[in-house]
Nucleic acid binder design. Structure first.
Length: 544
RNA sequence: GGCCCGUUGGAGAAGCGGUUUAACUCAUAUCCCUCUCAAGGAUACAUUCAUGGGUUCGAACCCCAUACGGGUCACCA
């Protein structure tokens, strides 16, 4: 078998030595298959692998599991790396790393010789054998087993090709008959093994007794085999992967043992879930927008917020730590498996939004300008247009009520900024102005006179209290009480109170009933624009 | 269906045999502040830890059963 393979297991051991790392340093990995864009759960997994490697002074690498040629999507390999990088996850070694690393290749499709070397040895030892069973045969076997209510699968006496004569196997292969290679299990389904999982603790699992396929008929290895071989020769110390793998742990354990490899430590990560009609299910790329990491990029959620959120579901003590270390870097937080939940958290978009608001509120106007512009260039031409008309103007807008102890938290994403600031731009202001929204209780004539007075006499050049005093005085002339309290004491004396007058001004200036502080808006707009907008409105007011 | 794992408020969760009146964060609600909104401040929200039974002087914490939820049973990863 495999006459072209001359290398031995020993050669491989020599070629891929243990890394020279300090004690306790973890070698971790992320092993995606290139079947589409990065899933939020995968980002979570890669983030955790990277964090454990880095906080222990170890190495995080990426290995591409591209052995399923049918499901592969061309180009998704690079997209995966790019999207990880966008979230600050970057391999130290392996696929997509600057440093290629000495334990490669890191693309499974390029490791065929390594797998064949191991398989050749396994077959020589009698621990693996070629199997010629067809799909139909296998189907029939399963149906038979199901009808008898016995354990299904290819194992024990059902493993028809276990003892197929060697000469016949050789001639069958030479004649081109398709085959797979199976691992000859020695396990007993009724015996249990104890396995330690870093998150779940000690697990008691039934031994594997299936002669699983390790090499498919297309000559590529299956996941189970590639995992064992790769994580051994890549010298992984800590395998972190989704919890869907715990069920196949006995297979892996048996192979590690029979190959004489040390087993790495395992951490089976919880899967991120979603509530769907009262039932929990895995976050699905097809049904849930937030399942694809690109969603956050496209909508301009700051990556720091997404990462921060992922940490809150990774470790339950993270939020408390963050409260005490408000400005500390994420790398100062020590992630542990003890504080990791066993079952999947429900993805909470509301919390992502909350964290995003906090993250954006903490930024300076300059940072916001730079980052928003970068976002807009890729995803939002409309926003880019506004920014590029005058970056300083944009900065001034976004700086409103920012440089204070409790800055505004309006923006939940870069994308959301657009809707909040549109009215500062004349064209958007004019098209969105809707005077029917004016309070009908105030006569149009009063509105007109008030706005006229405001446009000619309102002073907002000095400070805010001075402006507000002046505003109250002018409003008073037209029957508005200087405060809600005073208005309530004698409602008949007034047509409204200062809040109502402010609403008129606000609507006239912005087209909106809810905006940040009016004084600051006018400061940004500037006197000529304020006057011009007021005149524009007076002009538009119905004539009666 | 078999086998694994789990079940504390709307969400993430802390607690792991006795000062727990079950932390903390988000969400929600009310109030205060206030030119509106956002923010901020205050308060409320699980008499009870899926249910039933045990063990114990004492249980969310230990044991058993039931229910429910998740995972897995491929030449997919």
């Amino acid at each position: 078998m495999f006459p072209d393979i001359q290398e031995t297991l020993e050669d491989l051991e020599r070629r891929y030595p243990e890394r020279d790392l300090p004690k306790g340093a973890e070698v971790t990995r992320f092993a995606p298959s290139p079947t589409g864009f990065l899933h939020t759960g995968s980002l979570f997994a890669s983030l955790i692998a990277q964090t454990f490697a880095h906080q222990s002074g170890g190495i995080f690498f990426v290995r591409l599991e591209d052995t399923d040629t049918k499901r592969e999507i061309v180009g998704s390999d690079l997209a995966l790396i790019e999207q990880m990088a966008a979230f600050g996850v970057a391999p130290d070694e392996g696929f997509g790393a600057r440093e290629p690393g000495r334990h490669g290749p890191y693309r499974q499709s390029e490791r065929a010789r390594i797998y064949k070397t191991v398989i050749k040895e396994l077959v020589r030892r009698g621990d693996a054998y070629p199997c010629f069973a067809s799909t139909e045969e296998l189907d029939e076997l399963r149906k038979y087993q199901e009808s008898r209510k016995i354990l299904t699968g290819y194992y024990g006496s059902f493993a028809k090709y276990r003892d197929y004569p060697v000469e016949k196997a050789v001639s069958d292969i030479e004649s081109g008959r398709p085959y797979v290679v199976r691992f000859r299990s020695q396990g007993d389904h009724n015996c249990y093994i104890k396995v330690r999982d870093e998150i779940r603790g000690s697990l008691s699992l039934s031994q594997n007794d299936q002669d699983i396929v390790i090499l498919k008929s297309d000559g590529l290895p299956t996941y189970h085999f590639a995992h064992v071989v790769d994580d051994h020769f890549m010298r992984t110390t800590l395998v972190s992967r989704g919890e869907e793998w715990v069920a196949s742990l006995p297979i892996h354990i048996e192979m590690f043992a029979r190959l004489g490899f040390n087993t790495p430590r395992f951490a089976h990560l919880p899967v991120i879930m979603k509530l769907d009609e009262g039932k929990k299910r895995k976050l699905s790329k097809r049904r849930d927008v937030e399942a694809a990491v690109s969603f956050f990029l496209e909508h301009g959620y700051p990556v720091a917020a997404v990462i921060e959120y992922l940490f809150t579901i990774a470790n339950s003590n993270f939020e408390e730590w963050r409260l005490l270390n408000k400005t500390a870097s994420l790398t100062d937080f020590k992630l542990t498996f003890e504080k990791m939940s066993l079952d999947g958290a429900l993805f909470d978009m509301a919390k992502v939004v909350f964290i995003s608001k906090e993250v954006l509120a903490a930024k300076s106007a300059q940072e916001l300008l730079t980052e928003t512009r970068a976002y807009a260039m890729s995803y939002h031409p409309g926003l880019l247009d506004l920014i590029d008309r005058d970056p300083e103007y944009f900065k001034a807008i976004v700086n409103i009520e920012r440089e204070k102890e409790n800055p505004r938290k309006d923006y939940s994403s870069y994308e959301s900024i657009y809707e909040f600031i549109k009215y500062f731009y004349r064209d958007h202001y004019e098209t969105s102005l809707d005077l029917t929204r004016l309070n009908p209780a105030v006569p149009v004539a009063t509105v007109r006179s008030l706005l006229w007075a405001l446009s000619t006499r309102m002073a907002f050049e000095s400070d805010e209290p001075a402006w507000f005093e002046g505003f109250k005085a002018i409003a008073g002339e037209y029957g508005f009480a200087p405060s809600g309290k005073i208005f309530k004491q004698n409602p008949d004396l007034y047509i409204g109170h200062i809040g109502d007058a402010a609403e008129i001004l606000r609507l006239a200036l912005t087209g909106l009933k809810q905006t940040p502080n009016l004084f600051q808006i006018m400061k940004v707009l500037g006197r000529p624009e304020v006057v011009s907008r007021l005149e524009f409105v007076i002009d538009k007011l119905p004539q009666k």
